[in-house]
Design a protein around this nucleic acid. Structure first.
Length: 490
RNA sequence: GGCGGCGUAGCCAAGUGGCUAAGGCGACGGUCUGCAAAACCGUUAUUCCCCGGUUCGAAUCCGGGCGCCGCCUCCA
């Protein structure tokens, strides 16, 4: 199997060949730690988490670096508003980030460098650029001279002259060219500062990513990822700085994920139309959010709505229900070994090859939507087998069902879903439903008993009344040969 | 204005030259059930925004149009 990745640089799907066979150096732009993360951040995190998982699953040794920007204008301003230090603010938001990521099942990066811990590396890189004539100092600021880098604009397909016509030098900036960008900013009174050859100041945003990525991954990264909004100017600038400094190719494969929109508009801090990860997780299961985020190809826009999350929850419930029932049958008391029909054998075979189909989908530029389609096919096949097993029970189903469950949960490793014990997942869903219904477990059981008595007496009217009453409270009753069971309504 | 992306069923979505246009949610019919629920089976796009072209053959390629979105300033 061969992995193909869409490279923003070439605008084409390319065969993935890392610099060193079998090893992948991957850098993804993390967050600026000044506020809670929203679903847009979650998408980027989950998408690249799936990338890392899939690379590792298919045998690559991945070094994954995701940075924190812990000093910049937004942090300084927010800290000032809150009356705390930039260090405190950044620390708090990095902790929030870690909590959110852990909840979402996003693997920790191997290295999570922070800008403020890499000031010497940043300064060294800027010095190289000054020495080589790509950067110049101006009253304590240092700027990158865009005109010195001939292929500037190649990544984001910008035309320098057109960019220049729209750009302006803002008051207080000492650029020679409107397109030049800051590598080092002289400290203003009261701002955090570090000493440098150009006087006290702090690094610009773009240079920190160049310095930190190359420090841990070398001059050439295999994969550099981030949101589409970072392509210009952030990644364009990173590329210019890095290649100017090293004379080597900076990134082999540029990957950019599309935006999360809400009512068709980009979700962003500036528009104020964002929903935080924390908010979502107070209403939905983290895996439902993951499922939602992976339900569309990573490069396309993805429109958020509570309905969409509910749909993902319904789909996830169906998967867990099937797994739970398969477990239950496998552990059940059936002893009789009657032969199982060939249809069941075929379904079990289909399930056993799910992993291959998921991996193939992922190999095609991480087609998670197609991969999920295969997963749902397998779940339907599993339910089909369960129906047959319920109709004509046989102990011969047990091993097949156990293997099928393992095949499914193993196949979705890259997607990072179905990681919970199915019974636990359903129990949590049920507990939440019970809480929401306002009933205690005891009250619920009394109602169920009363209904069963009514059913025995063939008082269907009363029995249905109780069932309807519970249904309105979000609790569904199911009459099975083993008795009446209740569960959360979808 | 410049650059880029998108428009596939009621909704979401995969498919980028050729087998029956995946899958999810929903709706309807059937099996099951006292009736339900869940699950399964079946139906739900003879057609992929519109018009023209290339081709033996196009949702898929080309040209034009309409509509939506994004980047060009901080943003995942």
């Amino acid at each position: 199997m061969t992995l193909f990745i869409y490279n923003t640089m070439s605008r084409k799907k390319e065969k993935f060949e890392p610099l060193t066979p079998g090893k992948v150096g991957m850098y993804v732009c993390g967050i600026t730690a000044y506020d809670r993360c929203h679903i847009g951040h979650a998408r980027s995190a989950v998408v690249f988490d799936a990338v890392v998982r899939h690379l590792r699953r298919t045998g690559f040794k991945v070094t994954f670096v995701r940075n924190f920007t812990d000093i910049d204008d937004k942090i300084i301003n927010r800290a000032r508003e809150e009356g705390i230090s930039t260090v405190e603010l950044a620390q708090r938001e990095m902790e929030h980030f870690h909590h959110d990521m852990e909840a979402l099942g996003v693997l920790k990066a191997d290295i999570e460098p922070r800008a403020t811990e890499h000031i010497p590396d940043i300064i060294a890189l800027i010095e190289t650029l000054v020495e080589k004539g790509f950067a110049y100092e101006a009253e304590g600021d240092v700027y990158f001279s865009v005109r010195k880098f001939p292929t500037y604009g190649a990544l984001s397909r910008r035309n320098l002259e057109e960019l220049r016509s729209g750009a302006r030098i803002r008051p207080g900036e000492k650029k020679k060219d409107p397109l030049d960008f800051a590598l080092w900013k002289a400290a203003k009174p009261g701002e955090p500062k570090w000493n440098s050859p150009w006087g006290p100041g702090r690094p610009g945003w773009h240079i920190e990513c160049s310095a930190m990525s190359m420090k841990y991954l070398g001059p050439t990264l295999d994969i550099h990822g981030g949101g589409l909004d970072l392509a210009f100017p952030h990644h364009e600038n990173e590329r210019a700085q890095s290649e100017a400094a090293t004379g080597r190719q900076f990134v082999r494969y540029w990957m950019h994920n599309g935006f999360v929109t809400i009512k068709g508009e980009k979700m962003s801090k500036s528009l104020g139309n964002f929903i935080t990860i924390k908010d979502i997780l107070s209403h939905f299961h983290p895996e439902a959010l993951r499922l939602f985020l992976l339900s569309k190809h990573y490069r396309s826009p993805l429109d958020y709505s509570p309905e969409a999350l509910r749909e993902s929850t319904a789909a996830l419930d169906r998967c867990y229900k099937a797994l739970a029932e398969a477990h239950q049958f496998a552990r059940g008391p059936v002893k009789k070994k009657r032969p199982i029909p060939s249809e069941a054998e075929e379904d079990l075979k289909l399930i056993s090859t799910l992993g291959t189909r998921v991996d193939e989908a992922m190999d095609d530029d991480f087609n998670t939507a197609l991969a999920l389609g295969h997963v749902f096919d397998a779940v339907r096949a599993l339910n089909r087998v369960l129906s047959m097993a319920a109709r004509k029970p046989s102990a011969l189903y047990k091993d097949g069902l156990k293997t099928a469950c393992t095949a499914i949960t193993g196949a979705v490793e890259s997607l990072g879903i179905l990681k919970e014990v199915p019974e636990n997942y359903l129990e949590v869903r049920n507990r939440q439903a019970l809480e929401a219904s306002g009933l205690t477990l005891e009250e619920l059981n009394i109602l169920i008993q009363e209904r069963n008595q009514s059913r025995k007496d063939k008082d269907w009217e009363r029995a249905d009344e109780i069932r309807d009453q519970l249904s309105r409270k979000g609790i569904v009753l199911k009459d099975t040969p083993e008795g009446t069971r209740w569960s959360a309504q979808l």
